[in-house]
Design a protein around this nucleic acid. Sequence first.
DNA 1: CAGTCCATGTAAGAAGTTACATGATTCT
DNA 2: AGAATCATGTAACTTCTTACATGGACTG
Lengths: 176, 176
Amino acid sequence: MLEYIILGFLMREEMSGYDLKQWMINCTSYFFDASFGSIYPALKRLEKKGYIKSSEVVESSKFKKIYSITHMGKSHFLTWLEKPIIFSKTKQEHLVYFYFYQYLPKERAILNLKTFIIEVESLLNQLSKEKSDVEESYNVNQYTFLYSTMVYGVNYYQFIINWCNDLLKQIEGEKV
Amino acid sequence: MLEYIILGFLMREEMSGYDLKQWMINCTSYFFDASFGSIYPALKRLEKKGYIKSSEVVESSKFKKIYSITHMGKSHFLTWLEKPIIFSKTKQEHLVYFYFYQYLPKERAILNLKTFIIEVESLLNQLSKEKSDVEESYNVNQYTFLYSTMVYGVNYYQFIINWCNDLLKQIEGEKV
DNA sequence: CAGTCCATGTAAGAAGTTACATGATTCT
DNA sequence: AGAATCATGTAACTTCTTACATGGACTG
């Protein structure tokens, strides 16, 4: 995942490992963050694979290693981005995809959003059913915390679906 | 985290590694899950530390290794559970804590919930401010996806706070 | 009698973190 | 002059997953 985040940031402009960390802190830290100990080795790997290239510069009397994305890197990134979003139940990884959907053709973004909604709806229906079963079988007041986490789950899935639908309306409403 | 989940499940009743996996699938998979490859080694570690003990039984002609929690394991688990909940921005780990809050004294549960709410409120305020800055500085229609992920973030934090407040009301309203 | 489920376990590898090491520059 | 920030990097470690290996019991 980290390697794709890096490529995604480099789609915008070339920058150093340190700059990447700053962007993460400022822009994505509420759903994704990484340490220097993983950023620098990731940059080395990406360069070795030919997805990025570096140039050592001295900017305002500070040594910097500026990385830029290659044609191969761009196509590698877009191939990944256009694949269906895998919903992780335990992490907020889906936001990583949406954050970079600016680089996807509108039609593809709409298609993937719809596929994603269907996947989350399926999970919502499963959990909703389990929640109903619990409501029927037990006195939920005796299991406040267990039941509340189920309520959390159901409402969380619904929240994601609503947000996706809002986003869908917005993109579909935009002038081509 | 996995070791505490296992201890939490064993607080209810003794069970095998296989049973633990079934409980995760049925009950916690929407916020936590683990593979056999991590469950079995975790059980070995926990037994080595003296937090659980095992007995090999043949139940309905099937070999099983049943684990039960020790006094030391219980106190180790409760010591962890009563500590302040660390909010992970990228994972749903806070639900793990709440799921087992049935084992915490009511007053402690209320205190930790309130502390947690304050932490999430602080994150909400930060992100809200950043969102306002973006709204002032840019035409958000040109950055639909970047802006939408921010809206997601703000609403997600608000969702958690609302859920916590509902839970708080419920526990406080319950007869002692 | 083949397939699925029950049941336990290991080995290799993925993907990160924390802590450390280094050194220049800028701020107070 | 000392602290904070800028900037890159490595080593050891943590914590998981995937894939494999094994074998008995049940099911159609």
